[in-house]
């Protein structure tokens, strides 16, 4: 079996991501459970990279076979990523607003204490 660069790099990235997750567990920033979920996710991705044939099953149910369809799937992937990115940005904005509101509220307690 011959490997393409993609098939080598992807498992490497997955490995780093999984190691990173467990490192966070070690530093008590992530729970074991979350690291497990994370490992399953990345494990899945590297399996697909190493054995692309495992996707045959997916092909069978979606009917994605030829090149035109591949383009469509890729652009769907890009769109998905953009939405994902926006959701995260929105989350961050919301958190920032909450932090500000909370700080303002806590200023009052300093006053009541003195």
């Amino acid at each position: 079996m011959e490997f393409t660069a993609y098939q080598i790099i992807t498992p490497l990235i997955s490995f780093v991501a999984i190691a990173y997750a467990w490192n966070l567990v070690f530093k008590q920033k992530k729970t074991i459970w979350e690291a497990l979920l994370w490992s399953v996710f990345w494990g899945f991705i590297s399996v697909i990279a190493i054995y692309p044939n495992s996707l045959d099953y997916l092909t069978a149910i979606t009917g994605i076979k030829d090149r035109e369809n591949a383009v469509m799937v890729t652009s769907l992937g890009v769109l998905f990523f953009i939405v994902f990115y926006l959701v995260i940005r929105l989350e961050n904005l919301e958190q920032r607003q909450t932090r500000m509101t909370r700080k303002l509220a806590l200023k009052d307690i300093d006053k009541t204490k003195k």
Binding site: Q97, T98, T101, R102, L104, A105, L106, I109, K113
Partner: peptide, 23 residues
Amino acid sequence: LTHIENCGAGAATMTGIDAARML
């Protein structure tokens, strides 16, 4: 303590716990 904007029950609870810690 007053949140000038509605933030949700979680944020309100954490503000309260922070204040309790200060006290």
